[in-house]
């Protein structure tokens, strides 16, 4: 599937407020994401990255434009269909991880499986397998608060991939981590999580991890202002 389009966003517009208070966060943005690709969305605060990310992942309804995910126009779906789309096709890794502190690590990872109505014991078994993939099988029965920031990040990744999504979305994955841990996490994602049936979109400010991107989409003032390859950008960054 590598090379074919998994997400096609066309003429996306999103504004907040009405009248004089109206702020246009995303202005006529169109782009595509390919299977097997890691796409970074970068830009200064207020450039519309998060709004764009929310619109392509079925979370925030655009005022104009369309988003097609695997041939389905997602903004023609109702709320329940969108929830199903997110559950089955999209995995999220949030900036603050949003792990339930009162559940164990394995129970946190199993949440997408439980939402998919999988039987409890089977979900726990499968969740342990995903924890094994991120190297945290021995932490399965601990509560997230007993894990380091990097480990919590990996738990969040395990939870995101547990639903076997085609699209993985990372929101500032390295924001809460030191540079070395952040690079290791993204390298791990690229090596172990990305495959030709999956695309990964990362919103980040962290130029230290640009080298792992296939493409970097730059945004400013709600518009796409250019693309670079991760390699090119990392070279510039080193200079």
């Amino acid at each position: 599937m590598g090379g074919s389009v998994i997400i096609k966003a066309s003429n996306l517009v999103k504004w907040f407020g009405e009248g004089e208070a109206r702020t246009v966060a995303v202005k006529q943005v169109s782009f595509e994401v390919q299977y097997g690709e890691i796409l970074y969305i970068v830009g200064p605060s207020g450039s519309g990255k998060t709004t764009l990310l929310s619109m392509i992942s079925g979370i925030l309804r655009p005022n104009e434009g369309s988003v097609v995910v695997e041939d389905q126009d997602i903004w023609k779906m109702n709320d329940d269909e969108l929830a199903d789309l997110r559950l089955n096709k999209i995995g999220f890794v949030f900036q603050d991880y949003h792990l339930f502190p009162r559940l164990t690590t394995v129970e946190n990872v199993a949440i997408p499986l439980i939402l998919k109505k999988m039987e409890w014991n089977a979900a726990m078994k499968l969740a342990r397998d995903y924890l094994d993939i991120v190297g945290l099988k021995d932490r399965a029965d601990l509560q997230p608060v007993k894990l380091s920031g990097g480990e919590q990040q990996r738990v969040a990744i395990a939870r995101a991939i547990a639903g076997q999504p085609d699209i993985l979305i990372f929101d500032e994955p390295t924001a809460s981590l030191d540079g070395d841990t952040g690079r290791k996490i993204v390298e791990f994602v690229k090596t172990n999580i990305l495959n030709e049936k999956r695309a990964i979109i990362i919103v980040t400010h962290d130029s230290r991890i640009y080298e792992y991107a296939d493409r970097i989409m730059k945004m400013e003032d709600g518009k796409i202002v250019g693309y670079e390859s991760g390699y090119e950008n990392s070279q510039q960054h080193e200079k």
Partner: peptide, 14 residues
Amino acid sequence: NIGKFGAMKAIGAK
């Protein structure tokens, strides 16, 4: 737990 419930919604909870 409101943030976690929001995260569950994002993940796909109806």
